[in-house]
Write a protein that binds this DNA or RNA. Structure first.
Lengths: 416, 416
DNA sequence: CAACATTGTTAGGCGACTGAACGAAGTAAG
DNA sequence: CTTACTTCGTTCAGTCGCCTAACAATGTTG
């Protein structure tokens, strides 16, 4: 029962993905090390790497010191070999990034949000923004892989529509992916902000192959994305990681999700800002995110009320983090999203403190907790990462299609 | 971006596993339906099925009605073709089952627990029990695949040792799997009770291929096992699903896990029984599980104090269930383990009620909640299922081995 | 009965991966 | 400088899984 060796036919979801992923995680690595890391043979590594070099994705970058024989030829991704566009649609605004193979951002800009505009106009604007900037920064259109569009809220269906409650309800029936695909002429992927952010962190953060990694995302709402062994964990309906809608008070205030007393209602930026307003704290008042940022600055200066408000929020978030860590047995938890870009340093110690005592497997391994190095544009970077992964290192589709003739689960009343 | 078709080389973790799993889930199915359900070609299905028939795992069982052409030949697993032994080591006692391919129990018996005995003696007793019963019930030793040993608590290492706090600490250093393997002469697998129960439910409960399924296990403690697309989700260190050690009160009572205020401390059978004793309720007093069963019977009769105690426990469990459902985006949640065998009907409605309002994706799909049909021996059945899956439908090892030359996660203080 | 529909099998081929032998490029000892 | 040895990487023939395409089997329908 050895776990590492895949044996004949065990099928590595294409060794290509495995190898590319290990190079990504390692930064610089030789072919021998690749054979050890992937469990493939030297022969396979050799041919696959050659193909990657021919495609331009990988370059040879000098040789290592000899260890008593032929020195290793070192391999790296060529970051500039491919690019992808990430678009984060949010009420507050639209954030664009162009990211390269290494997940690094080569261009980044923001535009006003869609508001109540007709989706068709918004799509036209997006297409214009993309082609203009692609031309300006000199990215080879031949090597532009696609566009990843990310929005808050759950996805209605995997391809074509997004559903971002409570705002943007008039988008619910709009085939967003197809429309952008037609307008831009590139493949378009759609996903949830938290999910995409997690993949962006994986792709750009040097996360080791095989790590179990979650991104705790706080933008307007609170959610989490989950990456297991480099693949997004989606659950049944792509709604996995909805930690913001776990109930902490059955009689608590109503949440837009239809439930009551969700963590988001107590700890989300909107709630924190609302309480600050109740407490009479002066805030810009233009938008929740600006108010939240102001509050974070005040707390960083040590002002008492903001410190208390954010501390309360942080304790809820720490509880959510503990749940994620214990349920998923995490290696790594990244705090990301616009809110953590402003207030991450206030939340981080609270989360770490909670996990240092409350992580069940702490005797076996740590959970590393970090703040994303690009928290404010994490969702857009994630959008780009979706494209990079889909085009360069495609994974087995999470769930196989299930035919309707399958036996149903044997009764049991079920839930309304 | 179509999700279903795997394309050349996309590698189905061996189509054999996929086909076997669909037949298991469907009960009865034809080859054409298999092609649709698995995405494989008719040719592949044909040859793989022939191989399965040659091995005796699958049998042809009549033909379906014609739909205007050649009628379909129906296929089923031959339940009696293979067997596996499941052993559940617990403080209270050792439960044995022999299960067949279909996950049905063909033999089931209990013996006193290990207590403080020397592990070597216990291993000898286990081996004797197994060989005696295998001979008695007439299972062909040639077709006995192995032994799955299940115990509470986390695993120290994947192969060889178990670690079952707070009792049985003297087992921590003992190479249990190897010892039993030597004594019985069969492959031995080791796992956690909750994890195994989940797989047992998947294998024996006709759970559809591709379902996201969790078993909420309450034996002595509280835990959960997670099955995604037929594969156990383990997390980094096989400690995924430890929902019983999520903190609901940071200042709560000490838990054996080292933390404070864990759900288990409030809602576990031990806690419920202790509170009943405090409240002056008369109980047998021989063991926690007997006391808990007595309490459940009293509550079923409508006695006020027991109803209240179990209701409190059920609300904690419902919260845990909600967390699992939202974080994992579940299809199916099974309540199992000895405690639910006695009190499941008291817990089930509370859990269902909580999910009907608090499951985030309820607009998209249901979470079915059921009580296991073999809750009292679920862990042992799960042990057998571990063996069935490993021997018949091996999955890609959850986590690839990661070589030490990989880049580390880029700093961030991490957790103690 | 012929014509058609549907299920399932057989044959040939492509591509991924492996094992094993070999070539390449260094170090270490005399 | 030559010889021996180590380590890295490639080449080549063979295996295996799965696909495409043609075909055989077995029913229904007019």
């Amino acid at each position: 029962m050895n776990a590492g060796t895949p044996g004949p036919g065990a099928a590595h979801t294409s060794s290509r993905s495995a190898i590319l992923d290990v190079i990504r995680a390692a930064g610089t690595i030789s072919r021998v090390e690749l054979t050890r890391a992937t469990g493939l043979t030297a022969a396979t590594v050799s041919t696959v790497v050659r193909r990657l070099i021919d495609e331009g994705l990988v370059v040879e970058a000098g040789r290592a010191e000899s260890t008593g024989g032929k020195p290793r030829m070192l391999l790296q991704l060529d970051p500039a070999a491919r690019h992808a566009v990430g678009v984060h649609l949010d009420h507050a605004g639209i954030t664009y990034v162009i990211a390269n193979l290494g997940g690094q951002v080569v261009a980044r800009w923001r535009r006003p949000g869609a508001g109540a505009d007709d989706p068709r106009d918004v799509v036209a604007r997006i297409a214009a923004e993309i082609s203009a900037t692609v031309a300006r920064v000199g990215v080879d259109p031949e090597h532009l892989l696609g566009v990843g569009v990310v929005s808050p809220g759950p996805l209605a269906t995997a391809t074509g529509m997004t559903l971002a409650p409570p705002v943007m309800q008039h988008w619910a029936e709009f085939p967003l992916a197809d429309a952008i695909e037609d307008a831009v002429g590139l493949p378009v992927l759609l996903d949830n902000d938290a999910t995409a952010s997690a993949l962006g962190e994986y792709w750009s953060g040097g996360v080791p192959t095989g790590a179990v990694c979650a991104a705790l995302y706080m933008g307007t709402g609170i959610g989490a994305g989950i990456i297991v062994d480099g693949t997004v964990y989606r659950g049944r309906s792509s709604n996995a990681g909805e930690i913001g809608h776990v109930c902490v008070d059955v009689d608590g205030p109503q949440c837009w999700c239809g439930s009551r007393g969700c963590i988001e209602v107590f700890a989300g930026p909107g709630a924190v800002v609302a309480r600050a307003a109740e407490a009479g704290i002066a805030l810009p008042g233009r938008s929740v995110s600006e108010d939240f940022a102001a509050l974070a600055r005040a707390a960083a200066r040590g002002e008492e009320a903001p410190v208390r408000l954010l501390g309360d929020s942080a304790r809820y978030l720490a509880a959510a983090a503990q749940v994620l860590a214990n349920v998923l047995d995490l290696d790594l938890l990244v705090l990301t999203g616009a809110s953590f870009a402003h207030a991450g340093s206030l939340y981080l110690p609270v989360v770490q403190e909670r996990l240092s005592g409350g992580f069940f497997a702490r005797g076996t391994h740590d959970v590393r907790v970090t703040i994303s190095s690009h928290a404010s544009e994490a969702a857009a970077v994630g959008g780009a990462a979706l494209v990079l992964q889909a085009e360069l290192a495609p994974r087995a589709a999470g769930l196989r299609m299930v035919v309707d003739t399958l036996t149903e689960v044997p009764a049991g009343p079920g839930v309304a």
